[in-house]
Design a protein around this nucleic acid. Structure first.
Length: 104
DNA sequence: CGCTTGACACCGT
DNA sequence: AACGGTGCCAAGC
């Protein structure tokens, strides 16, 4: 079982209206491959099943899946808001960031 | 088999 | 508070 499979499984379980961080996922898998998690999200072969937009940085900022395109970021934010996540100044309040162990 | 890359996290300045 | 440098790990070539 590759790390990617585990990551996909976890991300797919993120409930609506909540988000988690790369760090949380990595810790849950008992690995320190934070960066690998990011790579896996980027590849994202399970596109609809794996809502990568619900995975953010530990700071609460949205990561570069919209990266160089600020307008795309707004779209992601709108999507998150529609799911019930409040976004402030392009960042998500800690209240919405749930550790993987909380919803697994 | 070894080198390079990365959608991160942490710490110091 | 913001920016940059460093360290970690997996995947791809």
């Amino acid at each position: 079982m590759k790390l990617s499979e585990k990551v996909y499984r976890i991300v797919a379980k993120i409930p609506k209206g909540k988000v988690t961080t790369y760090g949380s996922i990595a810790r849950y898998l008992k690995t320190k491959a934070y960066r690998a998690v990011g790579q896996i999200m980027k590849h994202n072969p399970y596109a609809p099943k794996v809502p990568c937009h619900r995975v953010i940085k530990s700071d609460g900022t949205i990561s570069g899946f919209s990266g160089s395109d600020p307008k795309n970021i707004k779209k992601k934010i709108a999507l998150l808001r529609k799911e019930g996540v409040i976004v402030k100044n392009g960042k998500i309040p800690k209240e919405f960031i749930v550790d993987v162990n909380e919803f697994i």
